[in-house]
Design a protein around this nucleic acid. Structure first.
Lengths: 230, 230
DNA sequence: GAATGTCTGTTGGAATTCCAACAAAGGAGA
DNA sequence: TCTCCTTTGTTGGAATTCCAACAGACATTC
């Protein structure tokens, strides 16, 4: 069996664990490694949701099929990334998405009940694993809530400002760099790029913000801000 | 100390636990009961996020203050309901919201690290508690993802149909009753009620759906591309 | 330097949504 | 039955957004 420590240490589920701990952890969890060839499924929609997946090598895609079979890619996952955890832990009976390898891939599958059950020999890092798991899902939850708050704003301008003010809070400064280019920001906020660009220009000429590329600066800042995520 | 078993048994965190189990559970977790008078805070924005809260009696509101100090009510919580769990478990340093009692209330506060750490005497139900916790957060996660999927649709009509087709899947039938009236559905989808009503009428006269009140039925809806999902 | 491609800003007409106001359809209670 | 009240449907003009097309800035490659 190959050594996947380097990949696993990049996975948020295993932060705080060193290679020897990882090995005992995996043995304790009875993780299964599955090889999947390009184009083949890791699992298909409708199958029981019982596993947490970790990409070890290659690339897999999470795919949703709507009512009439039209497919859309929900996520593209690289080595170290987690998948299917939310479905499995939510206790739903069957997966509402398919996971397909878009390159020859290896994935680690962990039984979700085993992850949640403290083993009888109570290995030292099982508790850390659960903390990492809960933290990861909770953080995803926060991220989704934030996105909903931005998208719930009525106008494009309000969406932009809601996002930027949060970013200012996050960075603890009126001046910051966002992790998106214009197209990605528009996609994230659920608006049209060109319309967003126009609104950003208006905000700029109104003196409310300044920006160049991914750098932004909020003007007229009323300091009201002490909270930082993460 | 009063007996809160009736309330706690309604809390998703404690499903599967009977009164005697609950008592030992609470003792193990060292839960603190806090009395809060109407108008007073359970905690304020900016304070450390270390507790999971359960409303025992009264009513509390989760309140967010935006950049300009304008308050909005994010949630109104009744006895048995959980709050602050996502913030605490996400590992953020300080609460981004305030929780205020809108009636004289009692709340149970559980230290989140204690919830996540298996106790040395490893009480029998601690593991069940963690499963309930993870399941609850994961389910909330799914709900948020769905809402985002509906809101990401370009037009009101597409938002409605994305929602209704999911409901049909959920109920396993083309005929079902949704848990919203028109106003609540519009708020949920992030659109204008009157505009939504108009779109529903169009869908009806086009023969794509039928509806009366909260009852809906999907007719021979033909895929009407391009139906962009993402 | 020229050619190419990507990213961003601008623009105008088409499409959609918002908004307010009102009408119609029930339900609850007197 | 008759109000009163809530919910839902309808409508038209204002406001906003979408969409496509294009232009300028910049980086890369040949």
């Amino acid at each position: 069996m190959k050594n996947y420590n380097e990949v696993l240490s990049r996975c948020p589920l295993f932060v705080g664990m060193e290679p020897p701990d990882l090995d005992s952890m995996l043995a304790c969890l009875d993780g299964k490694i599955k090889n999947v060839q390009k184009g083949n499924p890791v699992f298909l929609e409708g199958t029981p949701a019982r596993f947490v997946g970790v990409v070890l090598s290659g690339t897999v895609q999470v795919i949703r099929e709507d009512y009439y079979g039209i497919r859309s890619i929900l996520a593209v996952l690289q080595p170290g990334e987690l998948f299917a955890e939310v479905f499995s832990f939510a206790g739903i009976t069957s997966m509402p998405v398919s996971v397909i390898a878009s390159k020859d891939s290896e994935v680690l599958l962990l039984d979700c009940t085993r992850v949640l059950t403290t083993c009888t020999n109570s290995c030292h890092y099982h508790n850390l694993l659960m903390k990492n798991l809960v933290q990861g899902i909770a953080q995803k939850n926060l991220a989704l809530s934030q996105k909903i708050r931005y998208m719930s704003q009525k106008t494009t301008k309000e969406k932009i400002m809601a996002f930027l003010l949060d970013q200012a809070k996050l960075h603890g400064s009126t001046e910051f760099v966002i992790p998106y280019d214009r197209q990605a920001l528009a996609d994230y906020l659920g608006v049209e790029r060109s319309a967003m660009s126009a609104e950003i220009s208006k905000l700029k000429s109104a003196g409310q913000i300044d920006t160049k590329g991914s750098w932004f600066c909020i003007r007229n800042f009323m300091p009201n801000l002490p909270f930082v995520y993460h």
